[in-house]
Nucleic acid binder design. Structure first.
Length: 470
RNA sequence: GGCCCGUUCGUCUAUCGGUUAGGACACCAGGUUUUCAACCUGGUAAGAGGGGUUCGACUCCCCUACGGGCUGCCA
């Protein structure tokens, strides 16, 4: 059984800044956030920029932005891993002093040719440094890398909260380099030192790191540090079951904002992808925060399913209060590089929201459904609407208008008026609604005519009708 | 090549030795209707394959197949 440390929970998300925040990274961050926040712990952010070649400030900014949109707030400042390189080097030298690491004078050329020879011979031998057991007195005055003196016998056991007990034979692992010959730390060293120094209690990350956990655990052991709880979660795959890549379309978290999914729906969907709490499908933050636990995480990779995301998105939009929805809409418009709502449109939108939000899937649908409220006179009729506004249609509107002038402006008041008009004309209600729809929205596909009339009001309704038959 | 992980309806999953294998999305059919939706009712659909263990396996063990990961002075 995996026993958590007595200390308060500290988790972290540690992306390397080499591109946008990937959807898989977003989910990893979410799991860490949920675990920490649900337990009153801390959620830290560390930018793994030890690879100076590939790391860019733009990528760091994109990652922070992606997390912010997802609503995953971190404690304190985001730390740069590169800032700790002196500390990393210090630990590497402490390991040498403790005898758990050693200086290796083999050059990169020697190692490369060893590997090339091994491969040519059809073997896949690991490189064993000849300096592992060399007498320090015989050390040359040359550049050296520091290698872990990994145990050659026995096995390393990873007690993983998701994967269970994973046993890795030590002789399948080599003496990994912890400090490069230029004095910079490798990832394997840096993560361990940083996680230890930051007091990280639970390492929740992609299962592509499962094997690395064995190597890293050796570093903890070498320094006599307490090993954190490991939790290696399966990766997300594309709809075709292959590893998610550019060719699957949207891979960056920001893409989803630009497509119009509300952040709360993303959190719901992403949390549910690879994690379950019984049959619960639709939930908000308060509930997941309460429910989330490592035990509920599955071990198989999950595929992205846009249909399901859309469904969840629709449910969240319907459930959200209008102010929050308007705020999401503003963010979406900006992310999609679409023009922002004018103050007048914003006002119209907030009046229309209660009538349209329960029948859409994504944010842009809101704009489309609220089209009738957003436009101003004169209403421009599209081709189909023009058909509905033929002479017969116009006549219907004309005879209806007077009755509307003294109608009580509520659904209960309007209903009798419209049905009476339809009956008088000897037609079904649908026939009457068609020209009305066309006059009020300039379209034939709109929300309910009653809803539209209530949103735009009596004067505007009558004015638009008069425009249509005038 | 070696090592590690995985495999329940099309998809996400429940099940933690005994269930007619449940739910959700999607899909199909019917209903409702004021267009598009939404909504209501019903339905199709699953334990990769083969061996064990057991009174009894989706569940435990082994093998095979398939998928993924690691095997760097990348992270």
């Amino acid at each position: 059984m995996i026993s958590a440390p007595d200390r308060p929970v500290v988790t972290r998300f540690a992306p390397s800044p080499t591109g946008d925040l990937h959807i898989g990274g977003g989910r990893t961050a979410l799991f860490n956030w949920l675990y920490a926040r649900g337990r009153g712990g801390k959620f830290l952010l560390r930018i793994e920029d030890t690879d100076r070649e590939r790391s860019t400030p733009a990528a760091t900014a994109a990652i922070l932005q992606g997390l912010t949109w997802l609503g995953l707030d971190w404690d304190g400042e985001a730390v740069s891993q590169s800032a700790g390189k002196d500390r990393h080097a210090e630990v590497a030298h402490q390991m040498v002093a403790r005898g758990t690491a050693y200086k290796c004078f083999s050059t990169q050329e020697e190692i490369a040719s060893f590997r090339a020879a091994a491969e040519a011979g059809g073997r896949f031998a690991q490189f064993l440094s000849p300096w592992r057991d060399a007498d320090p007195a015989a050390h040359p005055d040359a550049p050296f890398a520091i290698r872990m003196r990994a145990p050659r016998q026995g096995e390393t056991v990873i007690a993983d909260a998701v994967q269970g007990r994973v046993v890795i034979r030590n002789d399948t692992l080599d003496d990994m380099i912890v400090l490069r010959s230029d004095g910079t730390p490798t990832y394997m060293l840096a993560v361990v030192v940083d996680d230890h120094d930051m007091g990280v209690t639970h390492v929740i990350r992609g299962d592509d790191h499962l094997n690395n956990a064995a190597r890293q655990q050796m570093v903890y052991d070498a320094m006599g540090w307490e090993v954190p709880v490991w939790a290696h979660i399966p990766l997300i795959h594309g709809p075709d079951g292959k590893k998610l890549s550019k060719r699957h379309g949207a891979t960056a978290v920001g893409d989803y904002q630009a497509m119009g999914y509300p952040a709360v729906a993303m959190r719901n969907y992403l949390a549910r992808l690879g994690w379950a709490h019984g049959d619960d499908e639709f939930f908000g933050d308060a509930e997941v925060l309460d429910w989330f636990a490592l035990e509920g995480i599955g071990r198989a990779p999950a595929r992205l399913d846009f249909k399901k995301l859309e469904n969840l998105s629709g449910q969240h939009i319907a459930a959200m209060d209008d102010a929050a929805l308007l705020h999401e809409l503003d963010g979406f418009l900006a992310a999609a590089q679409r023009p922002a709502l004018t103050p007048v449109q914003r006002e119209a939108m907030s009046r229309a929201l209660p009538y349209v939000k329960d029948r859409v899937k994504i944010l842009p649908d809101l704009i489309d459904k609220a089209h009738f409220a957003l436009i101003t006179r004169p209403v421009v009729a599209d081709a189909q609407a023009q058909v509905a506004l033929d002479p017969a249609g116009q006549q219907l509107l004309k005879s209806l208008t007077p009755h509307l002038r003294n109608a009580q402006w509520a659904k209960e008041g309007l209903e009798p008026v419209l049905t009476a008009a339809a009956t008088a004309a000897g037609i079904g209600f649908g026939k009457l609604a068609a020209p009305l729809r066309a006059a009020l929205a300039g379209r034939t596909v709109t929300p309910s005519v009653y809803d539209m009339m209530l949103v735009i009001g009596q004067d505007e309704t009558i004015a638009r009708m008069e425009d249509a038959f005038g």
